[in-house]
């Protein structure tokens, strides 16, 4: 049996229920619901590439991204001529042309060809999304296969054949990024690059590296970016007898309408993961041993190939 007190409370509850509706803001309930919703971090980075490597950003589904990346020759001119004669390396550019496509909001793929004779295909998938009231970071997986198509080297035994599999490289990365505020985003990239062919008496087939990168916005549309890959093993790896170095790149990125321009200074000229993470023979030393920095830029242009839900009907009408 209910006591009088309990009845009184019940009655009071009924009244307060009515009163809360009578309040001025008719969206009080709705806004309580909104406050509980997960708010996913968006625009952690401007582009799907930080500088040389990838960011956690994916293309929207149905969007095609046409990318042209240039890395000029060494600023000191490399082996032929001096810096001024070579206009600080502008003469000897490596160009990469690539096409990326967003399949779903969390899955994208891409293919590319670089003048360093690297042909690559990659897949990138978003696993965890940073959100207020949720995960503190975004986690993505990046995996790529790279096939180089340089002429086969001279082998000690002339009858030996250079195996196709010797040309393959596999990159696996976890991309862990956090957007701290509107201007600062940082990303960690634990990386494994597998080289099918190395001098296995001295080196491992697997190079482990830890990358760190970040973006700091200067204005709404411009930012400075940086990226560094620190190798955990195979640091004494030689490429054609040359010492290898860790890659550090600095960039300035600006977006205008449908384009994102990224201007880059880096000690890596190649745009292939296998190369700038584990096989980079150029160093950052301005004076020592030589100034082998490279200028470069990335340009990205997106096209909407498949229109999102809700906009498809409009397309039909037009035709």
């Amino acid at each position: 049996m209910l006591t009088f007190k309990k009845t009184a409370i019940l009655v009071a509850l009924c009244f307060t229920g009515g009163i809360s509706f009578a309040q001025d803001d008719m969206f009080a309930d709705l806004n309580k619901e909104i406050a509980k919703q997960k708010d996913y971090a968006a625009y952690t980075f401007k582009s799907t590439r930080l500088l040389d490597g990838s960011t956690i950003e994916n293309l929207a589904s149905g969007v095609l991204d046409f990318r042209i990346s240039h890395r000029f020759g060494a600023m000191d001119g490399g082996s032929v001529g001096n810096a001024v004669q070579n206009l600080y390396g502008v003469d000897n550019a490596i160009t990469k042309i690539g096409v990326d496509f967003g399949i779903t909001p969390w899955l994208m793929v891409g293919v590319g060809h670089s003048a360093s004779k690297d042909n690559d295909g990659f897949v990138k998938a978003k696993i965890i999304r940073q959100a207020t009231n949720g995960m503190p970071f975004t986690l993505s997986y990046f995996g790529s296969i790279d096939m180089e198509t340089l002429p086969a080297p001279q082998l000690p035994v002339a009858t030996d054949s250079w195996l196709f599999t010797n040309r393959l490289f596999f990159t696996n990365q976890l991309l862990i990024a956090r957007k701290f505020n509107n201007s600062l985003s940082l990303q960690l990239m634990p990386t494994l690059v597998h080289y099918n062919y190395v001098d296995s008496s001295k080196f491992s087939n697997n190079t482990f590296a830890l990358g760190i990168g970040g973006r700091m916005k200067l204005t709404k549309r411009a930012a400075i970016t940086a990226e560094y890959y620190y190798r955990l093993n195979n640091t004494n790896l030689l490429v054609n007898g040359h010492t290898t170095y860790n890659t550090f790149s600095l960039g300035y990125e600006v977006e205008t309408g449908g384009h994102v321009f990224q201007f880059i200074v880096s000690n890596a000229q190649s745009l292939a993961e296998r190369s700038f993470i584990g096989q980079n023979t150029d160093s950052w030393g301005f004076l020592y041993p030589k100034n082998s920095l490279h200028l470069g830029f990335n340009i990205s242009r997106v096209f909407t190939i498949i229109k999102p839900e809700g906009f498809k009907e409009e397309e039909k009408k037009k035709w």
Partner: peptide
């Protein structure tokens, strides 16, 4: 009264939606 959440605005072009929001 009307109320709209800005991120609910959908655009034909994803990049336009990004720029609109950001």
């Amino acid at each position: 009264q009307f109320q709209s959440q800005i991120k609910d605005f959908k655009f034909e072009k994803a990049l336009m939606e990004d720029h609109f929001n950001e």
